[in-house]
Computed example of a mutant assay.
Amino acid sequence: MIREMIVVEGKDDTTAVRRAVGADTIETGGSAIGEDVLARIELAQARRGVIVLTDPDAPGERIRKIVAERVPGCKHAFLTKDEARGRGGIGVEHAADEAIRRALERVRGPETDAEEPAEIAWTDLLEAGLIVHAASASRRERMGELLGIGYANGKQFYKRCLMFRITKAEFQAALERLEREGR
């Protein structure tokens, strides 16, 4: 069983997470997160820790951002769009048990040592074709999958590289794989 509470969007997500790993969850009830839910997430973070596992879509990213801003120190787990795709759309509830377990094994935490210099620079993203490039969105999507930080626009991708302390070696290995795949 996972020690931390897992923040998900709804009841179907809770069912999927419990089926995959038997963890406790907090449901946000969608992207309009109420103060009572945020208070429960704050309490859970203080007592057990929190992992945010939301759908890989715009509302899921909005929830992730709201929780991260309100409750510092949360960990994050990401599913790819392919892993979360089902007949009814894209969501945690459609993911296979194994995909949920993989996402939770690759959980990322925020930067804890502000004294440590950032390894990834904005120019690294530019040189890698992750920004200001004809295929930058698809390249960022695949890099996000390889690094385990999910898809984001250029600015948010850079912030995630810093927040999750992506090293130059991790970044370079993912970039080399991306290039081998011909993307």
Rank of each mutant, 00 (worst) to 15 (best):
M1Q: 13
I2N: 08
I2W: 12
R3C: 03
I6P: 07
V7H: 04
V7D: 01
E9Q: 13
D13R: 01
D13S: 12
D13M: 08
T15I: 14
A16G: 09
V17L: 12
V17Q: 12
R18F: 05
R18C: 09
R19P: 01
R19D: 10
V21N: 07
V21G: 02
V21W: 00
G22Y: 12
G22W: 03
A23G: 09
T25N: 08
T25Q: 07
E27F: 03
E27G: 01
E27H: 05
G29P: 06
G29N: 05
S31Q: 13
S31E: 11
A32W: 07
A32P: 00
I33N: 00
G34N: 10
V37L: 04
L38G: 04
L38C: 04
R40Y: 03
R40N: 12
I41S: 05
I41N: 04
I41C: 07
E42Y: 00
L43A: 15
A44R: 10
A46F: 01
R47A: 13
V50N: 00
I51W: 01
L53K: 10
T54N: 06
D55I: 03
D55C: 03
D55T: 04
P56K: 06
G60V: 07
G60K: 10
G60M: 06
E61T: 09
R62D: 06
I63A: 04
R64D: 06
I66R: 14
A68V: 08
A68H: 12
V71R: 07
V71A: 04
V71K: 04
P72C: 13
P72R: 15
G73S: 14
G73P: 12
G73Q: 14
F78E: 00
F78K: 00
K81H: 12
D82C: 07
D82V: 13
G86A: 07
R87G: 15
G89Y: 08
G89L: 07
I90W: 06
V92G: 03
E93L: 07
H94T: 02
D97T: 11
E98G: 05
R101L: 09
R102N: 14
R102I: 11
R106I: 00
R108M: 09
R108P: 04
R108Y: 13
D113G: 08
A114P: 13
E115D: 15
E116W: 10
E116G: 01
E116T: 14
A118N: 11
A118E: 11
A118Y: 13
I120P: 06
I120T: 02
A121K: 08
D124G: 01
D124P: 00
L126M: 15
A128C: 12
L130P: 01
H133K: 12
H133I: 06
A134M: 13
R139P: 00
R140T: 00
R140A: 03
R140W: 13
G144I: 09
G144H: 00
E145P: 00
E145K: 07
L146A: 09
L146I: 09
G148H: 04
G148P: 05
I149H: 11
G150E: 08
Y151T: 02
Y151K: 11
A152P: 12
G154S: 09
Q156I: 14
Q156G: 01
Q156M: 13
F157Q: 02
L162K: 11
M163V: 05
F164Q: 09
T167M: 07
A169C: 02
A174G: 14
E176S: 14
E176F: 10
R177G: 04
L178P: 04
E179I: 15
E181F: 11
R183T: 10
